[in-house]
C-alpha cells in the first residue's frame, strides 16, 4: 500500500490591512507558493489569541503562521504590540513542553510586501515539511 506523501497542514491568521493585503499582492503578481496553507482573515493580528493558536495545533495543524503589520504601522495603532508579546511567549512555552520549535511563527508582512509573503509561505511550508507531522498530531497520547 503506497504511503501518501506527507503534506503539512498550515493555518495562517493574517491581518486584513497588512499581511492579507500582502498575500493579495503576491497573487496579483502571480508569485507561486505551496497550497498547504489555509487562511483565516482577522482584522488585526491582535485579534488572534493564543487560544486560537493552541486550538489549531490541537486539531492537527503542523504549522501556524501569524501575519501582522510591522510595529508602528498597525492599522489599529498598537494591536500588534500584544501580538508579539503573546506569540513570543507562547513559542517559548510550547518549546518547554517539548513541542517542536518553529511550528508557530510570527512574521510582520506589510501590504506592499507581496514577494516577502510568498517567500515566507514557501520557506515556512518547506520547514514544516522537513519537521514532519506535528508530535501532537501523531501521538496525542504518548505511552
Amino acid at each position: 500500500m503506497a504511503e501518501k506523501e506527507y503534506e503539512p497542514k498550515i493555518i495562517g491568521f493574517f491581518c486584513n490591512w497588512c499581511t492579507y493585503a500582502g498575500a493579495d499582492l503576491a497573487g496579483v503578481s502571480r508569485l507561486q507558493y505551496p497550497p498547504n496553507i489555509r487562511v483565516i482573515r482577522v482584522m488585526c493580528s491582535g485579534t488572534v489569541s493564543p487560544h486560537h493558536v493552541l486550538r489549531a495545533f490541537q486539531k492537527g495543524a503542523d504549522g501556524v503562521l501569524i501575519g501582522g503589520c510591522h510595529i508602528g504601522d498597525c492599522h489599529y495603532l498598537k494591536g500588534n504590540y500584544m501580538t508579539i508579546k503573546r506569540m513570543t511567549f507562547l513559542q517559548d512555552l510550547l518549546k518547554f513542553t517539548g513541542f517542536e520549535d518553529g511550528r508557530l511563527h510570527l512574521e510582520w508582512i506589510s501590504a506592499a510586501e507581496g514577494p516577502k509573503f510568498a517567500q515566507v509561505v514557501r520557506e515556512f511550508t518547506e520547514k514544516i515539511k522537513k519537521l514532519g507531522p506535528s508530535r501532537l498530531k501523531l501521538a496525542p497520547k504518548a505511552a
Partner: peptide, 19 residues
C-alpha cells in the same frame, strides 16, 4: 531539568503527565 531535555524527551514526559 526539563529545560535541559531534548524536545522529544520533554514531549514524552509532558504527554505522559497530561494523559
Amino acid at each position: 531539568r526539563i529545560d535541559a531535555l531534548a524536545g522529544e524527551a520533554a514531549f514524552q514526559e509532558w504527554m505522559s503527565a497530561f494523559n
